[in-house]
């Protein structure tokens, strides 16, 4: 058990194990992603109320789900690096921020595109969209703060504190935005109460959520490998790696 944690703290081990995982996970992820997209796009029946535009759900919901989960991944990594001074957690936190920001962005854009045929507007100040936008700004804040520090060790710790503060705030923000929207909700638009979904639509959706989690893992590992190389440039194992790559 403990030896696993010791290994987890060792950059060369992490670098090589991440490479091995990626060699398997990346092709599988791509296949599942394409399969899920094709299934959702072409092989599911249309929604009886929204018609075909609901097919955007197969990318909108997974990106939103993983984007939110990604914030917690980042915050937990930040907490670990802050409490136990574990460098690899710091690397993971740094790697998680841009992926999460990108997924949040995609969720917002696909939500806007979905909104046009369903609600007739590109942007609706709906509770969930608004909270997603706030989440996007939280991600950007972490990225900008990291960039602003010259001392990257301090940058990691500052971002860890910020992402923890964000974690405490996210439930409060979600609840208050939800409440705010119910206060201002115009009578003509109402989406609550239709959470039943037919299994012919549910399975591709679940597949896509799994695919996006796998995609998140892949991107996280890839970003971590790059970050490790950058940080450990002066060490022996990186030198040996370069010599090997040069031969191969």
């Amino acid at each position: 058990m403990w030896s696993f944690f010791h290994k987890l703290g060792s950059p060369p081990w992490l670098y090589s194990i991440a490479g091995t995982i990626l060699r398997w996970l990346l092709p599988i992820t791509l296949v599942v992603l394409v399969a899920g997209a094709v299934w959702g796009l072409l092989y599911t029946p249309p929604d009886f109320r929204q018609g075909n535009s609901y097919r955007i759900m197969y990318i909108h919901v997974p990106t939103a789900v993983v984007a939110l989960a990604g914030y917690y991944v980042m915050a937990i990594a930040g907490a670990i690096s802050l409490i136990w001074r574990m460098k690899m957690a710091d690397v993971a936190m740094r790697a998680a921020a841009p992926i999460g920001a990108m997924l949040t962005f995609l969720a917002l854009v696909t939500g806007a595109i979905w909104g046009k045929p369903t609600w007739g507007t590109w942007w609706e100040w709906d509770a969930r969209i608004t909270s997603m936008l706030v989440l996007f700004f939280l991600y950007l804040g972490v990225m900008v703060l990291y960039d602003a520090y010259d001392n990257k060790e301090a940058a990691g710790r500052a971002c860890a504190v910020l992402s923890l503060v964000g974690t405490v705030n996210i439930p409060i923000i979600y609840k208050s935005v939800d409440w705010w929207y119910s206060l201002h909700q115009p009578a003509s638009i109402k989406f609550t109460g239709e959470s039943t979904i037919d299994s012919s639509m549910l399975y591709p959706l679940l597949l896509m959520i799994v695919a996006f989690y796998a995609l998140y893992t892949c991107c996280l590992l890839m970003n971590m490998r790059t970050e490790l190389l950058r940080r450990e440039a002066r060490t022996g194992w990186v030198r040996r790696l370069i010599v090997e790559e040069g031969k191969g």
């Binding site: 075909n52 990318i59 909108h60 995609l106």
Partner: peptide, 14 residues
């Protein structure tokens, strides 16, 4: 897609 194709395909493309 019964008129929704532009939206759906644009979302998937992005």
């Amino acid at each position: 897609m019964d008129g929704h194709g532009g939206f759906v395909w644009a979302a998937y493309a992005i």
